[in-house]
């Protein structure tokens, strides 16, 4: 019998991107089912917090990560790679794109009430979003969608990993305040 655990570990150790179970099975020349068993075992070993690394299922497959509880030390080593925080405007724009993609600049503006030009540029530059085509509408506006990097930065396995937008609906209280302030009839001052 093959030392399958060792084979899988060494492949994951050397790879510089997530490896899918299919790929691992192909290289190890075994059935994907056997690989999945090994991966499950490795994921169980993640419970041991004294270990310096752990296996994670991320977009595209499995990959080794440094144990997050030691992140403050790891940061000292790889500080140059820590990405700059995106601005609040960029984050809101990104949330809109993530849920409404593909979406045009004008449609984003209609939601935020302000032109998303600057936010779009910074998101494009960070490769979190990409142009996905043009809308079949007057002026053929550019359509935007999330780029592959988006999933990785936010630790999502795939786009369906996003909670449904309805989960973010304002609480009843908030809703009441907004509607109360804005839909009450009559009585203005000045």
């Amino acid at each position: 019998m093959k030392p399958l655990k060792g084979i899988v570990e060494s492949l994951l150790f050397v790879a510089d991107k997530p490896l899918s179970p299919q790929k691992l099975a192909e290289i190890a020349e075994v059935e994907p089912r056997e690989i999945n068993e090994i991966l499950k075992g490795l994921l169980d070993e993640n419970q041991d917090e004294n270990r310096g690394f752990l296996l994670r299922k991320v977009s595209g497959g499995y990959r080794f990560y440094a144990q997050p509880r030691y992140h403050s030390f790891v940061e000292k080593l790889v500080s140059a790679t820590v990405s700059k925080r995106a601005s609040r405007a960029a984050l809101e724009t990104l949330a809109i794109i993530a849920y409404k993609q593909p979406i045009t600049k004008g449609e984003i503006k209609a939601i935020r009430g302000v032109s998303p030009e600057a936010a779009l540029n910074s998101l494009l530059e960070k490769e979190l979003i990409k142009e996905t085509g043009r809308k079949d509408a007057p002026g053929q506006p550019i359509l935007y969608g999330t780029a592959p990097k988006f999933l990785g930065v936010f630790g999502l396995k795939n786009i369906r990993d996003l909670p449904p937008l309805e989960k973010f609906a304002p609480e009843k209280e908030t809703k009441k305040v907004i509607e109360g302030k804005l839909t009450r009839e009559g009585e203005f001052q000045q």
């Binding site: 949330a95 973010f168 609906a169 804005l182």
Partner: peptide, 14 residues
């Protein structure tokens, strides 16, 4: 505004 608030919450989540 309710719709916008939704996305603000989603941005918090992100």
């Amino acid at each position: 505004l309710l719709e916008f608030q939704k996305f603000k919450n989603a941005a918090d989540f992100l």
